[in-house]
Write a protein that binds this DNA or RNA. Structure first.
Lengths: 344, 344
DNA sequence: GTGAAAGCGCTAACAC
DNA sequence: GTGTTAGCGCTTTCAC
């Protein structure tokens, strides 16, 4: 069990150093480093050897200064602690690696006025070739956020203005299917545990839920507003228990669904016997909740992949082609939903 | 609902452009940009105005080339999909933002030979001022991974060699407490669901579990080897049910514990009535599992904070001070553990 | 196939 | 308090 090894420390030999050792011009070293073809085989070998000897390491800054390309893409995100953001970032990172780019994350701690623009500006100071903004933004601040450059930008948020390239999951259809599923099972109405009011994803899901009810002539009951956390779901679950008249709940994410189920269990209610629950996200754990959770699956990997694809196209062609790509969701029916007792 | 706004696109005015408009030297512009004090108030105002007029944006590459500092720290990670890695990255990102640094993530897709070194080398090409390596590495490859520069490095992995600055949670104590808790409850022995063999965290936890049993004169039963996923926990849970003689299980993470509990439920076993379960991690969701999971809490936020703190010190002082910092864990007792029936 | 010269945008060092 | 000079390490251009 050796652990890591650490060879002789040497700092940044330059092309000039290599050139001296190999007895060529630094230009030739550059050609070898960039795998250009017009270098004699013997010369190339000599240069390669010299590189090894002096411990050459390319200097990104110099290269970037010269070429104007950083081979890095920026990701602006408000939190990594939600399942969706984490998954999306993971996918973006993987997709970026495929095209030989790194990912620079800037996490905006508290999306209050000023902070956002400031942090964004900092990132946009050309240390990256393009930016993905994963929005879970507060309504108030959005109007303030301006994108100060002509840098390629992709926004993960189906509510960004028309000037943007947008990638998102099809939240509307997902929420509709979830609600319809419960209604089709025979529930008279469906209650909703939403995400925070400031979140556009939350808004979308809530709107779609309400619309689905309305279309069937059902007046949507009041919304329980959570904050995505298991804790908020638990707290709301207790309120729902206290009401006593709820048979079907659609939670805007799996974590709140989980919290609510815990409150139901504690109150001695059976899921789905006494009350049906649907989530949104389809976390890895959701299939192992008790009972296994019926939920709306989101394909975050695809979202990440499409972000990078769009971004790279904009970067390479230097064109800006606004447009909206919606990644389909699908309802995964498991064991947390059933017909209401009255209908059974 | 306006969405984002996008002002007139303009690309990269330089300091020279600003200088021309403001009627000063570009050096003065630099001074203003860097908030040096020795600039006349009126001049500063003029420069600021000119910056706005021409749409000045600093060029990171040029600055980095000149100063040798990137204001970015690199994070090498094998996956973002585990709870711990994600949390740690989140904390690192937050801590880095505090000291005005961005975080460049490089995700090594498949830690096979060559890939690791290659990816590491790519990152280490001086686009960052220091590196955090979050290790969940395969044994085989570790020997191959060398750190080719004298760049500041912090490793999150209590098994890195002595030449490194190491930050990690105290896995040994955590696993010991978990095992002892079960034993103290009266269980005759404790079975273990481990993480993948290639993982050092998994190895630590398994070793500590075995040692705790041995110290009490108990021969450790065979280990069930999982892969951190809920699915593997579920699969192993079914094996455990089939054995019929297990009363206490310590899983190396919460997700596997969750999967196992699902298998137990399906088999009609009561947790903790028939079988007690302890996890490791203390995910946000764990308190809402059914039953709420007894588990070992890890303070990932602290780990991330310490990583950045150590790294910044090394960067700023240009010294390398190897050392090992262990962040304490603590056992959180909830409802998934109880005395065995025989003892009750 | 190879080299010499120029310059990307910035800041450190020194002049005034 | 401000300007001038030089050069970070690289690549582009143009010679040869």
């Amino acid at each position: 069990m050796t652990g890591l090894s650490r060879p002789e420390a040497r700092r940044g030999a330059s092309m000039a150093d290599v050139a001296k050792v190999a007895g060529v011009s630094s230009q030739t070293v550059s050609r070898v480093a960039n795998e250009k073809t017009n270098v004699d085989h013997a010369t190339r070998e000599r240069v390669l050897e010299a590189m090894k000897e002096v411990g050459y390491q390319p200097n990104h800054a110099a290269r970037a200064l010269r070429t104007g390309r950083f081979k890095s893409i920026g990701v602006i995100v408000f939190t990594l602690s939600t399942f969706g953001n984490m998954k999306t970032l993971d996918a973006i990172t993987a997709a970026a690696a495929e095209v030989d780019h790194t990912v620079t994350v800037i996490r905006i701690p508290d999306p209050t006025r000023g902070t956002v623009s400031g942090a964004y500006r900092r990132l946009s100071e050309q240390a990256v070739d393009g930016v993905v903004i994963i929005f879970e933004a507060h309504l108030l601040d959005r109007a303030e956020i301006t994108l100060p450059t002509d840098q390629p930008v992709v926004v993960v948020d189906s509510n960004a203005g028309d000037g943007f390239t947008v990638v998102d999951t099809d939240q509307t259809t997902g929420a509709r299917e979830a609600t319809a599923h419960l209604l089709d099972l025979g529930h008279e109405t469906v209650w909703h545990i939403s995400g925070p009011e400031a979140s556009f994803s939350a808004l979308h899901r809530a709107q779609s839920w309400a619309a689905t009810l309305s279309e069937r002539g059902i007046t949507p009951p009041p919304v329980f507003v959570g904050d995505w956390t298991t804790d908020s779901g638990y707290r709301i679950g207790k309120e729902i228990v206290a009401r006593g008249d709820v048979t079907a709940v659609f939670a805007a994410n799996d974590q709140m669904a989980l919290g609510a189920m815990t409150a139901f269990h504690e109150a001695g209610l059976q899921v789905p016997g006494d009350i049906s629950v649907v989530g949104f996200d389809d976390m890895e754990e959701s299939k192992a909740f008790w009972p296994p959770l019926t939920t709306v699956h989101q394909d975050f990997t695809e979202v990440g992949r499409l972000c990078i694809q769009s971004l790279m196209r904009e970067i390479e062609t230097r064109t800006h082609t606004p447009g909206r790509t919606l990644v389909p969701t699908r309802l995964v029916v498991r064991d947390s939903t059933a017909a209401p007792k009255s209908a059974a």
